[in-house]
Amino acid sequence: KRYRAVYDYSAADEDEVSFQDGDTIVNVQQIDDGWMYGTVERTGDTGMLPANYVEAI
C-alpha cells in the first residue's frame, strides 16, 4: 500500500521515521490503531510512523 504524508513528522524515537508533508510512504503495514510501518520513498528511511499523519493514495 502507498500513503501520502499530510503533515510533517519528526521521529521521536530511533525506530520511527521522519517525513514531510507530501512525501510518499511505501510498503506500509498497519501495526495497531495508531501506528504503521513503512518506507519514506524520498529518503529511503524505514520505520514506524503515526497513522493519523498519512492518507491512502
Rank of each mutant, 00 (worst) to 15 (best):
K1E: 10
K1A: 11
R2L: 09
R2K: 13
R2G: 05
Y3D: 04
Y3N: 03
Y3H: 05
Y3F: 10
Y3E: 03
R4F: 06
R4E: 05
A5M: 00
A5R: 00
A5Q: 02
A5N: 02
A5S: 05
A5I: 01
A5G: 05
V6I: 15
V6N: 09
Y7H: 14
Y7C: 15
Y7V: 11
D8A: 13
Y9P: 01
Y9D: 01
Y9F: 07
Y9R: 06
S10P: 06
S10K: 13
S10N: 14
S10V: 15
S10H: 13
S10D: 13
A11W: 03
A11H: 03
A11T: 06
A11K: 08
A12T: 12
A12L: 13
A12W: 08
A12Q: 15
D13K: 15
D13V: 10
D13M: 13
D13L: 10
D13Q: 14
D13S: 15
E14K: 12
E14Y: 10
E14G: 11
D15M: 13
D15S: 15
D15F: 14
D15E: 11
D15N: 15
D15G: 15
E16Q: 14
E16S: 08
E16T: 08
V17I: 11
V17W: 01
V17A: 05
V17G: 01
S18V: 01
S18N: 07
S18D: 06
F19K: 02
F19W: 00
F19D: 00
F19S: 02
F19L: 06
Q20A: 09
Q20I: 13
Q20G: 06
D21I: 15
D21V: 15
D21K: 15
D21M: 15
D21P: 11
G22K: 05
G22D: 03
G22F: 04
G22T: 05
D23G: 00
D23L: 02
D23Q: 02
D23E: 04
D23Y: 02
T24M: 13
T24N: 08
T24P: 04
I25A: 00
I25E: 00
I25K: 01
I25R: 00
I25D: 00
V26I: 14
V26E: 05
N27K: 08
N27D: 11
N27F: 10
V28A: 10
Q29E: 11
Q29W: 13
Q29I: 15
Q29C: 15
Q30R: 13
Q30I: 14
Q30C: 14
I31N: 06
I31E: 06
I31F: 11
D32A: 13
D32I: 12
D33P: 10
D33N: 11
D33C: 12
G34K: 15
G34P: 03
G34S: 14
G34T: 14
G34N: 15
W35S: 02
W35H: 05
W35C: 05
M36C: 07
M36H: 05
M36A: 06
M36I: 12
Y37R: 12
Y37C: 12
Y37F: 13
G38V: 02
T39Y: 05
T39C: 09
V40H: 03
V40G: 02
V40E: 02
V40Y: 00
V40T: 01
R42E: 06
R42S: 07
R42G: 06
R42C: 05
R42Q: 06
T43N: 06
T43A: 01
T43K: 03
T43M: 02
T43I: 01
G44S: 06
D45V: 10
D45W: 05
D45E: 14
D45T: 08
D45C: 14
D45L: 13
T46M: 09
T46C: 09
T46I: 08
T46L: 04
T46G: 04
G47V: 01
G47S: 00
G47E: 01
G47L: 02
M48D: 02
M48P: 01
M48V: 09
M48F: 15
M48Y: 14
M48N: 09
L49K: 00
L49N: 00
L49R: 01
L49T: 01
P50I: 04
P50V: 04
P50L: 06
P50D: 04
P50A: 04
P50Y: 04
A51H: 06
A51M: 11
A51Y: 07
A51V: 11
N52D: 11
N52K: 13
N52F: 11
N52L: 10
N52P: 09
N52V: 10
N52T: 11
Y53I: 06
Y53F: 12
Y53H: 10
Y53S: 11
Y53C: 11
Y53N: 05
V54K: 00
V54C: 03
V54H: 01
E55P: 02
E55D: 07
E55K: 10
E55H: 08
A56H: 10
A56D: 11
I57T: 08
I57L: 11
I57P: 03
I57V: 10
I57D: 08
I57G: 05
